[in-house]
Each structure stands twice: as structure tokens, then as C-alpha cells.
């Protein structure tokens, strides 16, 4: 019997005066991979931001239950501590802050929240070595400033490295495939697959079927005008690749 990880009910949100999500429902169990697809402007990235707690978006209705707890009012950092991870579409640069220091701070902040001692340097470095190997992160990137001067592929790989380090319960990959060549895509997908377990779940937000050849989803959802209008299995992605979204849009209008 699979265990419920997150349940989103009737979620509505807006930014400024614009309604983006308009009654979104989604249930994800542990051990599952969900793909969210949809045309531009359908609310895919908004969904990831809202789940991560970006306060530019105002949740006006509905609920987000994560591991048995309502989180729609929770701070982004607390959501992170509870196991929410967002791999950003455009990872930001933080000049002068080394990747290593950044992650050590992140882990220690979480430990602090759970009343656990700071992670000893030796243990931390061992973990860094293991995890960077897992996602094929170039050694020299670890000591560079966070994302500063990284290529597009390096940035995405760094996101997956951070994901490996933080070992989240729910990982949301926001268009992680954008800007990646096929080799980089394979490496990133490979990393994600290695991190998969029966205890966690992954949400893959993408425009293209291609990524789903490497990260195979259990469910594919189509998002349109802030709502999930269709759910299927992997074959739905292939169908979308062929037919586009228009046939679904007409459907949903009925």
C-alpha cells in the first residue's frame, strides 16, 4: 500500500491581480514520479513556486497537505527542512559564497531546526565526495561560488547535486531539461534516477517528452489555465508530443 506524500486540493493562487492556479488537485504517493506538462503560461512554474513557498504568490483558496501537515502558510525554509526541494529553472548566482559553504550552511540550518548538532567537517566532506560522484559533478565546481560563471549544464547539475545533499522527500524539477544538450540531459536524469527511492517522490515539470525517456513517469498530468485537465500514464506524453495540446483544450471546454 503506497503512502501519501502530498495532497493538493482546490488550490487557487494569484500574483498581483492575475489568477494563475484555479482549482488544482494533485495527489502524490511516496515512490512515484509525476510529470507535469502543459502549454506556456498554463501555470507549471507557478505551481512549483507555490509549493516551495514563494511569497510573491498569494494562495487564495485550497490546501497543500505535505506529510500530514498543512503547509500553505509555512515559510520556505521550513518546507525545505520538512523535505521539499525545488530544482530551479534558472538557478541564481551568489557571488563570493562557495558551493560547499552554501550547502554546509543549509544542512546545519536544518540540523538546528531538528535540534541536531552541526555536521562534522569530516563527515560533511565525505558526503560531498559521495554525492558529487553520484551526479557527476566536476570537482572544481564544488569550491566555486554558487552557480557563478557556471554553464547552463553545470547549473542544472549543481541543482541535482544539492538535491542529493539535502535528500528531500519531494523533489520538484522545474524544466530541468531546458538548455541541456543530450549528454548533459542523460547525466542529470541519471542522477535523479539514482536518488529515487520508495521513500521519496519526484515531480518533473517539462515541455518535452524527451526527458521522460530518461526519467520515466508513473503519471503524466496536463496543466491548462491553472488546472489539471488530463492525467494519464507515460503514453500520454508521447501522444502530446504528436498532437500538441489543442485537442485537450477543446475537451476541457466542454
Amino acid at each position: 500500500m503506497s503512502e501519501l506524500l502530498i495532497e493538493i486540493k482546490d488550490l487557487e493562487c494569484r500574483i498581483d491581480d492575475q489568477k494563475i492556479l484555479q482549482g488544482l488537485n494533485l495527489k502524490i504517493n511516496k515512490g512515484e514520479v509525476h510529470a507535469i506538462m502543459g502549454p506556456n503560461g498554463s501555470g507549471k512554474s507557478t505551481l512549483s513556486s507555490v509549493l516551495a513557498g514563494n511569497d510573491n504568490y498569494e494562495v487564495t483558496n485550497g490546501s497543500i497537505n505535505f506529510l500530514g501537515e498543512e503547509i500553505s502558510e509555512m515559510s520556505p525554509e521550513e518546507r525545505s527542512w520538512k523535505g521539499m526541494f525545488l530544482a530551479f529553472q534558472y538557478p541564481v548566482e551568489i557571488p563570493g559564497v562557495s558551493n560547499i559553504n552554501f550547502l554546509r550552511t543549509a544542512l546545519n540550518e536544518r540540523n538546528k531546526f531538528y535540534g541536531i548538532d552541526s555536521i562534522p567537517a569530516k563527515e560533511f566532506l565525505k558526503m560531498v565526495a559521495e554525492k558529487s560522484e553520484l551526479v557527476g559533478l566536476n570537482n572544481k565546481l564544488k569550491n566555486r561560488s554558487v552557480n557563478e560563471g557556471f554553464s547552463g549544464g553545470e547549473k542544472k547539475r549543481n541543482e541535482i547535486f544539492q538535491m542529493a545533499m539535502l535528500d528531500p522527500k519531494l523533489s520538484i524539477l522545474d524544466e530541468t531539461d531546458s538548455g541541456l544538450d543530450i549528454d548533459a540531459l542523460k547525466i542529470v536524469a541519471n542522477g535523479v534516477n539514482k536518488l529515487k527511492s520508495s521513500e521519496n517522490a519526484t515531480v518533473v515539470i517539462t515541455h518535452y517528452q524527451r526527458l521522460l525517456d530518461y526519467i520515466v513517469p508513473d503519471f503524466v498530468h496536463v496543466l491548462h489555465e491553472g488546472k489539471i485537465i488530463k492525467t494519464g500514464d507515460k503514453s500520454l506524453a508521447l501522444e502530446l508530443e504528436k498532437k500538441g495540446y489543442d485537442w485537450l483544450k477543446t475537451d476541457s471546454n466542454i
Partner: peptide, 29 residues
Amino acid sequence: GEEQLFYCMQRGISEEKAISLIVNGYAKE
């Protein structure tokens, strides 16, 4: 940057701590 702060917070770094990280990075030289 709000984006920098949100990025840090998403990783579990509180706002105050994130500011300190960013500022110390800025002043590192």
C-alpha cells in the same frame, strides 16, 4: 535580490542567515 534570498530559503537557509551569506560573499574580497 529577492531571487537570491528565495533560492537560499528554499534550501533551508533562513532569511537572516541568507542575507549574511550573500553580504559576506559580496564583501569577501
